[in-house]
Design a protein around this nucleic acid. Structure first.
Lengths: 124, 124, 124, 124
DNA sequence: GTGGTCTAGACCACG
DNA sequence: GTGGTCTAGACCACT
């Protein structure tokens, strides 16, 4: 589990952890049934408070990605891959919708958005 | 000046005001030299605190959109239109870059993004 | 009386008027006994409120530069030149003292201040 | 952090705080990475409102002297020393330029300014 | 504990 | 009338 945390980001640390684990699931680094590091171990590795890792795991559990068993640890759930992909797709749509919104405020056409997209793509 | 403010949004009220005024500038509703409503009047109209409208105006001044003169009022600056358009374009690019980022995490191609864009466009 | 007023300055308009008249006295443009324009005329010429020119004249009278006679107008006083020069000298000293202060905060020596002064002089 | 605040000064309290912290940076009392007192603690110590200390920290952050992290605190940035020295140097130049300006209005020569400077220096 | 946002008042200087 | 500064509270999210 290689998570890089930035204190200076405006994204909360717990959110960064959630995002990273979700990405690991999408990428197949974490598969259904795999055990996650304990909240205490992860907290140590990332040099953050246990409260922070606990909060991240709580969110992941709430959203159905992991299943925590008292005294045993946390494990990746079966639906996790599907859920993670759905989540990211929804995220993607949010950004595209926001882009469409702003483009309309700038009186830009759909083709102009696509042109801009092409431009940004070649830059990356 | 028709600004609709939502208390329940996670976007701070002062930011909503800033965004709205910026949009009015892009749309030509506010032109260079125009006077903005006084912070107190706007506060009354929006039913928010004077401090909130003041903060919005402070940000707009910092970013060069308006010029505030003590005892006189606030006025739209000359460069405001250019600035506002640049700001929105940069915003748009941020969203598209984020979209490209997430798409790559989902192993989606550029054409798939465009297809999704088309889909979202027809929905709107 | 050629006074140029700037609305965008952070110096109050009445202060700008006071400063200009004081400078005219130092430069000999206004001499002891000369009549000043009426507050109403001056207000018109400068496109400012009568209240503003009135305030300027009040300050000048308070500080002994002019003498206002009801129904006749305002006249430059005898001591005005001396007063004006003293005022400006005091101003000059304030700036030099402030400079000395800041220089000491920067751990700069007196000679270094003079060097900087020479540099700024040649630029002007 | 020994800051002495004057309520009766015409310099706003938040500005006094900004100046003091800037001076502490120049003097090496505050170094890169150091934590500043929390806005609430500082407010208590100085017997001023939290909003006042917050405004001071906001200005310092805007100008790049400190970095504020929500939930963590405020920390002195790396470029702070350079920035602070540049700021003070610019301040110094402003005062010297103003002095040159007034001196010319008084028809004083450069050497006369230097003489005055020497006089003021011995007084201090 | 930290900062971020917000409210409802107040007094001041400027015009 | 305008903005500039300030106070003394409050609730929220993050650690």
């Amino acid at each position: 589990m290689n998570i890089i945390i930035s204190n200076h980001s405006d994204i909360p640390i717990y959110q960064q952890i959630v995002d990273h684990i979700r990405q690991n699931i999408v990428d197949g680094i974490l598969s259904s049934g795999d055990a996650l590091p304990s909240i205490r171990l992860l907290a140590k590795e990332l040099s953050v408070s246990v409260i922070t890792t606990k909060k991240a795991y709580e969110i992941l559990e709430e959203q159905g990605y992991i299943k925590t068993v008292a005294g045993k640890g946390s494990f990746v759930s079966k639906q996790s891959i599907t859920l993670a992909k759905e989540h990211k797709t929804s995220d993607l749509e949010q950004h595209l919708l926001a882009a469409i919104d702003i483009a309309s405020e700038l009186h830009m056409s759909k083709d102009e958005i696509k042109d801009l997209l092409d431009m940004l793509y070649t830059e990356v």
